[in-house]
Design a protein around this nucleic acid. Structure first.
Lengths: 336, 336
DNA sequence: ATGAAAGCGCTAACAC
DNA sequence: GTGTTAGCGCTTTCAT
């Protein structure tokens, strides 16, 4: 079965028109008479013709492909964001070309690879990124938008578009609420130390505490994972006096912490409060009822795609940094 | 900043060689002398040259792109499978081109769209698929492998390669274990009725019960979601006598069921047993300790990619249907 | 409105 | 081993 793919020439021949006529009927906004268009469409239909996007892209220099860098899909927040992003891109007529980066992996090498596919742009929702890589992307006219992360090398802001949640505001919200409810000994469970989100949440946490003349009642790293959160909480429980509250840099760790607290026989929120970050679906499960800071996934995705398209239609525009509000969702894991 | 992309011609000029020499140094297994290769590489490096995969694909008729159809990333089993698949493809030098289908969506339209990108093959881990679509893919030489699903129209087996877990075997394992432990009134919480996996799990469940002269102690649909499982369990709890065990078509529903049972004040596994299917990470969380049937994600992904590659190197080979064992993971949600 | 012709950037014969 | 020459399937002038 030696199948030859059907090309515009085949269609043209069958429709009795020129090859360019075929091209025109499949090019939005080209001038073809209804008569030819009909003939072409009929022939195309009969032959099962579909334009070759590669050949088209070679000429138009736009492929509709958007590189999407993802990773750590074990953290439920990511697939949710990713799913939303994928379907939004699709709605806008773009195709996500995936790049998976392992935890702590750098995206640079993979980015160069997808660049070969002449992608129209690239959206990073995971992985880090050297400034040089960003510059190279921009140099060849490929817009980059960073979601929930900063560029590897600090000080390179204003280079690419970014959208992220107000991590600092969220941490502040958590601390204020906790303090207002009378908590004094508040500990922090950190995410991966090398992430943008963690450092923002962490330092805002520290600052907010300081504003009340408080010091953290402990800090442990939980690497953004369930197991990490659990272990971190256990370590925190070895301290005395016990913390009165735990602020976790994400929900997954908070869930792990909650389980550790329960295993230790502690009453939540009676004896200890727990606050997370993200608002993943599990946070609402009755087994946890986690109080947390909700990220506006929909808003993040919308802005990311908008930014990309804006840049696509005006390569000269200056980079924007969008920051979206987070909201405190009060459930039952914290005495507030 | 009107950036012209650097092409092989630019590199050739700078290196003082022919354009084909450049092509050859970037084509694995072509004959170039070390001398020229060096010169070319140096020039390429200096200019920041990267081969254009689109142009290459136009000629070689292979792009390295693999369409991957995903959906329902809210069920933790899917992102896990998907992440594994994406990284395995990447390791094999392929690029996942994403197609997201909404729940109950059909993949056909989207498949035709990605086909325009001259993908080398297509892997479906979500969505359904008409037989006609499959035939069309095969007709143009694009291998299709179905993961964990059958083809839409029944009776079209042997058409495409498939890999899935032994759903029937898993259901049987669950029933046998439950019955052996003395359970008699066993109810079923179904996934989406229109899925391959659910019907296999369901009918094997029924058959296994029948072999013991038993009838299901109730059946409710939970649509594979947490909320669905919760609601289904609640409905089941309205019956009397109460079921002694719940077999859930996936873990997410089982978790919802567990929470419903707890809310009703039932002791698990003292008064009622719960068994799931998948073994998602949450199943192991101390809050649930769900007994479940584990799917061999790694094996599934490996076979899927192997099948795709095998088909790629021999388009004539007959379709294979791989079925992988599942294993019963005993935790604490069932008295076994 | 339509056909002819010229490439887009690359690989693959084909000579040398 | 290397340059020259044809295209891959398409869009886009340029005439008509």
């Amino acid at each position: 079965m030696v199948e030859r793919k059907v090309t515009s020439v085949d269609v043209a021949r069958r429709a009795g028109v020129s090859q360019s006529a075929v091209s025109r009927t499949f090019t939005p906004g080209a001038s073809v008479s209804v008569a030819t268009r009909e003939k072409v469409l009929a022939a195309a239909q009969a032959l099962g013709y579909r334009p070759n996007m590669l050949a088209r892209g070679l000429i138009t220099r736009t492929t509709g492909l958007v590189g999407v860098v993802v990773g750590d899909l074990g953290n439920p927040y990511h697939p949710i964001l990713f799913e939303s992003l994928a379907s939004r891109l699709q709605d806008r007529g773009k195709r996500p070309l995936l790049v998976h980066v392992p935890p702590q992996g750098t995206a640079d090498a993979a980015v160069f690879e997808v660049l070969q596919y002449q992608i129209d742009g690239i959206i990073l929702v995971a992985g880090s990124f050297a400034e040089a890589t960003a510059r190279e992307c921009l140099a060849i006219g490929t817009p980059v938008v960073l979601v929930g992360r900063g560029i590897g090398d600090e000080g390179a802001e204003k280079l690419v578009d970014t959208v992220s949640s107000d991590n600092a505001g969220g941490a502040r919200l958590a601390v204020e609420a906790l303090v207002a409810a009378g908590h004094r000994r508040i500990a922090f469970i950190a995410g991966r130390r090398d992430t943008h989100s963690n450092s923002e949440r962490h330092s805002a946490f520290l600052q907010a505490l300081a504003r009340h003349g408080l010091e953290p009642a402990g800090e442990e790293e939980g690497s953004y994972s369930y197991e990490g959160g659990r272990a971190a909480a256990q370590r925190l429980l070895a301290r005395s006096p016990l913390p009165e509250a735990l602020f976790c840099a994400n929900d997954l760790m908070a869930l792990g912490a909650l389980d550790a607290l329960r295993a230790a026989g502690l009453d939540v929120p009676g004896e200890i409060s727990v606050v997370g970050f993200d608002d993943i679906p599990m946070a609402a499960w009755p087994a946890y009822e986690l109080t947390t800071l909700r990220q506006d996934v929909d808003g993040i995705v919308t802005h990311a795609v908008d930014l990309l398209e804006a840049r696509l239609s005006d390569h000269g525009r200056t980079a924007e940094q969008v920051i979206l509000d987070v909201t405190l969702v009060k459930r039952n894991s914290a005495r507030l």
